[in-house]
Write a protein that binds this DNA or RNA. Sequence first.
DNA 1: ATACACTAACCTACTACTAAGTAAGTGTCA
DNA 2: TGACACTTACTTAGTAGTAGGTTAGTGTAT
Lengths: 182, 182
Amino acid sequence: MDMENRKEQIIERALVHIKKRGYLSFSYDHLSKELGLTKASIHYHFEKKESLGLAICDRIEIGLDQMILAINSMHIDPREKTMEFFRMRISHINSDEICPISAFQADFPYLPEILKQSVQYVTKKEIGCVAELLQDVHKNKNKNEAKAILLLSAMKGALQYRRAVGGEIMETISKQLEEIVQ
Amino acid sequence: MDMENRKEQIIERALVHIKKRGYLSFSYDHLSKELGLTKASIHYHFEKKESLGLAICDRIEIGLDQMILAINSMHIDPREKTMEFFRMRISHINSDEICPISAFQADFPYLPEILKQSVQYVTKKEIGCVAELLQDVHKNKNKNEAKAILLLSAMKGALQYRRAVGGEIMETISKQLEEIVQ
DNA sequence: ATACACTAACCTACTACTAAGTAAGTGTCA
DNA sequence: TGACACTTACTTAGTAGTAGGTTAGTGTAT
């Protein structure tokens, strides 16, 4: 397989693993067996685990950009745009998974410094995305930033709760997030 | 040192480690070195890591009971009681830590079955605690359960966000939680 | 004497990471 | 056209370090 396809394939599988079990707990061994390669081959594409971690952060960032682009091309109510962001975000996370950014945050103290920075960057970017969508609802920048953090914290906390209390929690939370957006 | 004191000491240190780095990532080796013991000695008190995990869940449950007891003996507004619960909960978590229940949830798919059950139990118990405190504010049981889940999700999500965006986030969130309680 | 709290030394499995080698292809020059 | 240098995408076989867990034995207080 050519370089770019294989790299993408590894990033995609690693992202699934991170959503399932976190950054520190997934291993090149698991990953390689799933892809029908050797560990060494993954090291060929991503010299260190850290390099793969950084590539995944980039991947998440690209995903955010694509979502914002898709949402801004929709002709719907501004309130609906914010909710659409959350719907899209949740739809990429299976019921046995958590948000990959949350997974990185859970392992944060033991990440290599450069990966910490990348996680910080993508975390802040996501908050910025939501805050900007909220700007079309009410024009209070400070309040929107605070609201964005609340909405995101609640959504991601809920995704983790889902593991212990079951699936119906996300509907319960979504309804209440809608009230907060209003 | 006598059995009960040592056991308590191990649980206490392990709880700190779980708040800092999660259940899967803390090790008997680290723990033993901190306590000036050997790994084997910790295995003497807690045969398996799983046993220690269960003891920590018990410990968290006892902590919840004590908080509810303390809060119910206060002569304050019902709204304030709910907020006091959150203040107490947050005060036990340092700025480089996350909620231990969240930490267990983050590692959930790879916990032994019996520990999963214990985490589920303590998760639901905490939701029950908050929902009951809310019963003194508004008497709508279903809505209070939903509100409890929202408040807890937001708080715990925010504790994880704090690692990537810094400490001032908790004040921002607390103010907004107060509005939701009203 | 016996139970308790502990240690030294070990085992197996798994982690990230590396060294050395190879088959298949690409580009270039006589 | 064909020989040569080089690259890509891998493999096999390792390294050192750490994980959870075990076994057999030691010191001590009652």
